[in-house]
Amino acid sequence: KTVEVNGVKYDFDNPEQAREMAERIAKSLGLQVRLEGDTFKIE
């Protein structure tokens, strides 16, 4: 899975870890996480 923030992509081998990281980043920035294919987009 991939986490994308402001056009910057971070790859994770563990999908659960990617989801947790995406949620943590989104919460700290006051944004939403949206799953698009294999990418968690933070917008």
Rank of each mutant, 00 (worst) to 15 (best):
K1W: 15
K1I: 13
K1T: 14
T2S: 14
T2I: 12
T2V: 12
T2Q: 09
T2K: 13
V3Q: 01
V3K: 01
V3S: 00
V3R: 00
V3T: 01
E4A: 06
E4V: 13
E4D: 08
E4Y: 12
E4Q: 09
E4T: 08
V5M: 07
V5N: 02
V5G: 01
V5E: 01
V5L: 11
V5D: 01
V5T: 02
V5P: 00
V5K: 01
V5C: 14
N6Q: 08
N6T: 02
N6V: 04
G7F: 04
G7C: 12
G7N: 05
G7E: 03
G7L: 03
G7A: 03
G7K: 05
V8C: 15
V8P: 00
V8E: 08
V8R: 10
K9E: 05
K9R: 15
Y10L: 08
Y10M: 10
D11C: 14
D11Y: 15
D11F: 15
D11T: 15
F12S: 02
F12H: 03
F12E: 00
F12C: 14
F12T: 02
D13C: 14
D13F: 07
D13V: 09
D13A: 12
N14L: 08
N14P: 03
N14R: 07
N14G: 06
N14M: 07
P15S: 11
P15C: 15
P15V: 12
P15Y: 14
P15M: 13
P15L: 11
E16K: 09
E16N: 09
Q17N: 08
Q17I: 11
Q17V: 11
Q17C: 15
A18M: 03
A18F: 04
A18R: 01
A18H: 00
A18Y: 02
A18K: 00
R19H: 07
R19S: 06
R19Y: 10
R19V: 05
R19G: 03
E20V: 09
E20L: 11
E20H: 08
E20W: 08
E20F: 07
E20S: 08
E20K: 11
M21P: 00
M21R: 04
M21V: 13
M21C: 15
M21K: 03
M21G: 02
A22M: 03
A22S: 03
A22V: 05
A22D: 00
A22G: 01
A22I: 05
A22K: 00
A22E: 00
E23F: 13
E23R: 07
E23A: 07
E23W: 09
R24M: 13
R24C: 13
R24Y: 12
R24Q: 12
R24T: 11
R24K: 13
R24N: 10
R24G: 06
R24A: 13
R24V: 09
I25M: 08
I25W: 12
I25R: 00
I25Q: 03
I25G: 00
A26I: 02
A26F: 03
A26P: 00
A26M: 02
K27L: 14
K27R: 11
K27G: 09
S28D: 13
S28C: 15
S28N: 10
S28R: 14
L29C: 12
L29F: 06
L29N: 03
L29E: 04
G30E: 03
G30N: 07
G30W: 02
G30T: 01
G30F: 03
L31I: 07
Q32E: 12
Q32Y: 10
Q32L: 12
Q32H: 12
Q32D: 09
Q32A: 13
Q32W: 08
V33E: 02
V33N: 02
V33R: 00
V33Y: 13
R34D: 04
R34K: 12
R34E: 05
R34M: 08
R34Q: 07
L35N: 05
L35R: 06
L35Y: 12
L35D: 06
E36D: 13
E36A: 05
E36G: 00
E36Y: 09
G37C: 12
G37R: 05
G37Q: 06
G37I: 04
G37S: 04
G37P: 02
G37D: 07
G37V: 04
D38A: 07
D38W: 04
T39N: 07
T39P: 01
T39Y: 05
F40I: 08
F40T: 01
F40M: 05
F40K: 00
F40R: 00
F40A: 02
K41W: 08
I42K: 01
I42T: 02
I42N: 01
I42S: 01
E43G: 14
E43M: 11
E43C: 14
E43F: 13
E43V: 14
E43A: 09
